[in-house]
Simulated assay, not measured.
Amino acid sequence: MLEQVAAEAGYTRGALYHQFKGKQELALATLEWVLDTWQREVGVLVEREPEPVAALLAMARGHAVFCRRDIARMAIALRLEFSGQDHPVGRAAEDSYASLIADCERLVESGRASGAIPPGPPARTLALAVVGALEGAVVSLAGQAPHDEVLAERAVAGVLGIRLTNRTEEHR
């Protein structure tokens, strides 16, 4: 993964190390790169969808595709590695995760307000379950393209308590 970051930045791996004061600064920059890449590839799909359920399903499909590459593992690994620690890298990873949960929570609330998502657990709890189910699905389905995309979407739909229609699946 570091080689990919270096190549995208126009550096060799060795030259990349010289651009940072230490491993912590490099880890923070790499995490920022992963999150920016996610936003360009997945976040934009979510933003294009006017309906909250469609946005959450687009996130599921896009995240599955995003996670087919090794770059996605880094953010998850850092979040797990630094969980519960007061460390700059851990805080950055947790902040990005909290932002994703907040975005999902807003979509759940909007979906409930429109009647597209049925009542149930609190919106934050449901948002945590959506992200957890999505992460679990894509990690477990690594190397199973194109089925990972379809099954990630189904996992999110199931957590939301909605049924995918043939029309929904044909829209993909």
Rank of each mutant, 00 (worst) to 15 (best):
Q4C: 09
V5K: 15
V5S: 07
Y11R: 14
A15L: 08
K21I: 05
E25A: 12
L26D: 07
L26C: 11
A27C: 04
A27D: 12
E32P: 00
E32I: 00
W33Q: 08
E41D: 13
V44P: 03
P52F: 04
V53C: 01
L57N: 04
A58N: 15
M59K: 14
A60Q: 05
G62D: 05
V65M: 12
V65R: 10
F66G: 04
R68A: 15
R68W: 14
D70Y: 11
A72E: 14
R73T: 09
R79C: 00
L80I: 02
F82Y: 09
P88V: 04
P88H: 07
G90K: 01
R91F: 00
A92H: 03
A98D: 06
C104Q: 04
V108S: 01
E109N: 04
G115D: 09
G115S: 08
A116N: 08
A123Y: 01
R124G: 00
R124E: 10
A127L: 06
A127H: 14
V131D: 03
V131P: 01
L134S: 03
E135P: 00
G136T: 05
V138A: 03
V139S: 11
V139E: 13
S140Q: 04
G143V: 06
Q144R: 13
Q144Y: 11
A145I: 10
H147R: 15
V150M: 05
L151A: 07
A152M: 05
A155F: 11
L160Y: 09
I162H: 07
L164A: 01
E169T: 13
H171R: 14
R172Q: 03
